[in-house]
Design a protein around this nucleic acid. Sequence first.
DNA 1: AAGCATTTGTACGTATGTATT
DNA 2: AAATACATACGTACAAATGCT
Lengths: 250, 250
Amino acid sequence: MGGPRFEPVRAVRAYERVVEQVEEAIESGSLSPGERLPSERELMVQFSVSRSTVREALRVLQARGLVRSRPGDPNGAEVLPFSPATLHKSMTTLARVEELSLAELVQFRMVLDSSAILLAARLRTDAQFAEMESAVARMRAAVETGQDSFGEADVAFHDVVARASGNKLIQICTDVVRSIVLKLISEKIADAPDREALMRQSIRHHEEVLAAMRAGDGPLAARLSRKAMYDYYAGYIPAAEHPTLTALLD
Amino acid sequence: MGGPRFEPVRAVRAYERVVEQVEEAIESGSLSPGERLPSERELMVQFSVSRSTVREALRVLQARGLVRSRPGDPNGAEVLPFSPATLHKSMTTLARVEELSLAELVQFRMVLDSSAILLAARLRTDAQFAEMESAVARMRAAVETGQDSFGEADVAFHDVVARASGNKLIQICTDVVRSIVLKLISEKIADAPDREALMRQSIRHHEEVLAAMRAGDGPLAARLSRKAMYDYYAGYIPAAEHPTLTALLD
DNA sequence: AAGCATTTGTACGTATGTATT
DNA sequence: AAATACATACGTACAAATGCT
């Protein structure tokens, strides 16, 4: 004993080495969004691997949302700006494979959204507050005109709030989870019987939240937003799971 | 006008079609974790594509964490149980590429953790509460013995809380964000000058949280946990960003 | 505006190391 | 212990698509 402690060497595939190097170049900033990778034939020379290996590496990088390659493009694969698409994809499969329930997703939205509102109540700019007011105004207008624009205005409101929270992680997760929830219940929500009443109630709730924010009472605004979301979605969630949601209401 | 509305057809690659079909089979449940895909040669027959196409598809599926293939395995690629590895990966790149600040990450932890505690205060089982108490006990013991076991016990505590919240999404995100934060400051935390004082303070905070939970006061427990996390990490965060964190403290 | 050179997408054959039976 | 089936990797070839002249 006392000899050198060797670590087990996992046979790392050639394409993985290529992926690692390109990933490193991108994350370190030496390769910026918009720039191009060398062509596949160039890459196989630089890495001294076969074309298939290069291609498998490119497919992995593409799956991770880091690059995009198009047939015939003489400029090589394009380095993409980061987008939460990959995050969105993995959360969606999580929702499908792991049987993430609608209740859990709504609960998560309640948490994220109320936190964003709590933060926004203290950190928002006046311009952002004006945006929120305008979004609610559009919601009011949409009650008469159409049902699509109501949803869009609602999304816009929560988008501003998430942005005003100043936390990119909250912003991204809010966006991802919201779109998943909306996809899950889009068909149900369209033909709800008391749809107009729901819209009016939602608008009233949003107005209360805005009032609390204007008064500078972040905790109250956060509490109201949780209640608002519960009231809006409870109808689509089995009664047995309601207690897990009401546990968030003070 | 009034004619059929055609959608633009993007030339979808052959390997994408393969990915889609396998993905569909897994998410629909007709392929369960542990089961094996046909061999590559078999797949090229079934999809009537070349070997390279099959391999590129497998690389993408592997990158998404759905399958794993090993050289020489006569059984073909294995369908994996879902793991948050992909989620973890994309959040990590997010943290690096998008310059997600430590303050934002800690803020997100404060949000998730306090929500988990709020939920756990009402939904926990007695066994889970006992686990929490035992974790804090191990933290106390670790002040004398070693610094590693303190961190482990702390992680264990927050793991039980996340589990007790009953929300898988909270559980997964908590885990992911915590590991990222710990990786970012692992070197700094090891040689903090007043490390022992920090540990004792942390233990006191955990005990207060437990007391509030025992008393059934979820909101208080949540508030205390936010304060606890702020006190623990504030030293590693630039003072200019402290206001964004204190905005979460009532 | 059309054609040309280059690149990607796909296919096929082959060699080699590895895990299972 | 040998045989078998497999994944990994390499090389070549051709069609389709793209950008440039």
